[in-house]
């Protein structure tokens, strides 16, 4: 369907953006890659009066190593996440996640800022940033905030962003020798949003798990941190018994709603399968084969 009548304006800097917001208030909506916003416009699912193009604001671009964190600008596209050398070295979970998002042509435009701000419960990147313990760095006319990823996602398609506040960047603690991360999902067709998925980041203490963050997507209103399953892994060697313990704990961690893919029990089953698949990837080959 054609888009409704709408205005367009480009903000060339953050100050430009604040000025436009002051003039147009709630009628103005930020446009990044447009890969969600423009599709929802076609369906009349959103009805902004003015699209404010932020894609040329230099302050929202770039990937940089800053001490112990990797700062990823909000405008970083999914395709860039997939091929950026710094991301591959310091936040490999994001590099692994990017190719799971949609299709190449969509990944060439869609941005990490847009994906986090939209907060689709089945999206990969929100789950990844929670698993990584990342910080969402925001900007607004009133000043910026730093919000822990786990506190950023507040409900179905809802975030901690205030009106007029935007995501400027994501800061990810860099992976160390002891970090193991992986993402797996189950989707009916390549490129579809997942029926269920799991992003995991573990800190190893030798052969044992020091701490584990298992974050599911597609099984709740937003990314779901499976705290009990993570705790069940703590201090253990990643063997079959550890996998079974984590799987058993999921019953208390997850309360999946039924959706178009199937009933809660199907999602619970997929979650158990995903735990096995993710953890098997971290095991020494002999264990995984057993």
């Amino acid at each position: 369907m054609k888009w409704p009548a709408i205005g367009y304006v480009r903000a060339d800097s953050l100050d430009d953006l604040w000025r436009i917001q002051a003039e147009h208030g709630a009628a103005a909506q930020v446009l990044a890659g447009g890969q969600t916003l423009l599709a929802t416009l076609a369906f009349r699912l959103s009805d902004p009066k003015l699209l404010v193009d932020i894609t040329r604001i230099a302050a929202l671009r770039g990937v940089e190593l800053q001490g112990g964190v990797l700062r990823i600008g909000a405008l970083t596209r999914h395709a860039e996440l997939a091929r950026d050398g710094l991301v591959a070295a310091h936040a490999p979970l994001l590099a692994e996640a990017a190719p799971l998002i949609a299709h190449p042509a969509i990944r060439n435009r869609g941005t990490i800022g847009g994906s986090l701000a939209y907060a689709d419960p089945a999206a990969e990147l929100p789950a990844c940033v929670v698993a990584l313990g990342a910080t969402i760095v925001t900007a607004s006319a009133a000043g910026g905030r730093r919000i822990p990823a786990a506190a950023f996602f507040t409900g179905l398609l809802e975030t901690a962003l205030e009106p007029g506040e935007i995501i400027a960047a994501v800061e990810v603690p860099v992976a160390t020798q002891a970090t193991r991360s992986a993402i797996r999902e189950v989707a009916r067709r390549s490129g579809d949003y997942a029926m269920a998925g799991l992003a995991a980041s573990l800190e190893m203490d030798g052969a044992r798990v020091g701490a584990a963050r298992l974050v599911f997507f597609g099984v709740g209103a937003g990314p779901v941190l499976a705290a009990r399953a993570g705790a069940a892994l703590q201090g253990r060697v990643l063997d079959g018994a550890a996998v079974a313990a984590a799987q058993a704990s999921l019953a208390q961690d997850l309360d999946p709603p039924a959706d178009m893919h199937g009933p809660p029990e199907m999602k619970r089953h997929l979650a158990r399968v995903l735990v096995q698949r993710v953890l098997a990837g971290f095991q020494p080959e002999t264990e995984a084969a057993a």
Partner: peptide, 9 residues
């Protein structure tokens, strides 16, 4: 780079 022309203004 390839894009979806219907999702670009």
């Amino acid at each position: 780079e390839i894009v979806r022309g219907c999702l670009v203004l």
